[in-house]
Simulated assay, not measured.
Amino acid sequence: MKKIFFLITFLALCSCNKNRVYNKFDRDFKDNRWLKTDVRTFDFTISDGNQNYDLLFDFSHVDEFVFNNIPIKMEIANPDGSFTTENFLLKITDANGKGLGDCSGDYCDLQQAVLENTKLAAGKYKVSISNGFTNDYLPNVLGIGIVVNRSKDQ
């Protein structure tokens, strides 16, 4: 009976965001290290090219992260075969050094908008994400992902 209750609760929570088009999170980081050479890919499809969308980057890390920001490179393969590159700094802390993540215990999650209220053509997209950290790997990474939502600001 408990399994049925949890399944129903899970399905109800998943269906709450009707604007969500895609949501995937990758937790496969050996020893919590995101290697500089490790490019993660995410594939999604836009069915309505008349809408505007928000593309968000999800990041999960161990609490007490020692870096204020992380350089991220996101390459987007568009349905027409063209590519768009978004280079951005993922902000871990604010100007006062306070963490921006939602922390529970030793784990913190944060989300940063990469594209907001942007027209995306209908079709298949492939997003490739890498870190521009100066060392061979970025430590204390629990996972990364992307979320694509229909923009509310239309």
Score class of each variant (00 low, 15 high):
67 F>T: 04
77 A>K: 12
91 K>R: 14
60 S>T: 02
63 D>G: 10
25 F>A: 01
57 F>R: 03
64 E>A: 15
52 N>G: 04
33 R>M: 13
75 E>V: 15
70 I>S: 05
87 N>L: 14
94 D>Y: 01
78 N>M: 15
88 F>H: 06
15 S>F: 09
35 L>S: 10
54 D>F: 06
21 V>M: 04
39 V>G: 01
27 R>H: 09
84 T>K: 12
68 N>Y: 10
31 D>G: 00
19 N>E: 12
16 C>M: 15
62 V>W: 03
28 D>W: 00
68 N>V: 04
46 I>Y: 10
54 D>L: 07
58 D>E: 09
61 H>P: 01
94 D>T: 00
60 S>M: 09
92 I>Q: 10
19 N>H: 11
30 K>W: 06
36 K>I: 13
94 D>P: 02
18 K>Q: 15
72 I>V: 13
35 L>V: 01
80 D>I: 08
68 N>F: 10
16 C>Y: 12
51 Q>N: 13
44 F>M: 08
29 F>S: 04
56 L>I: 09
84 T>P: 00
80 D>S: 08
41 T>A: 12
91 K>C: 06
59 F>G: 03
72 I>P: 01
96 N>L: 11
56 L>D: 09
76 I>M: 12
81 G>N: 09
19 N>L: 12
21 V>D: 00
22 Y>C: 02
61 H>G: 04
33 R>H: 07
25 F>K: 00
28 D>M: 03
80 D>R: 06
17 N>Y: 04
68 N>M: 07
76 I>A: 08
20 R>K: 15
32 N>V: 03
84 T>M: 11
27 R>C: 09
77 A>W: 00
81 G>D: 07
89 L>C: 01
87 N>C: 05
40 R>G: 01
93 T>Q: 10
71 P>H: 07
31 D>K: 07
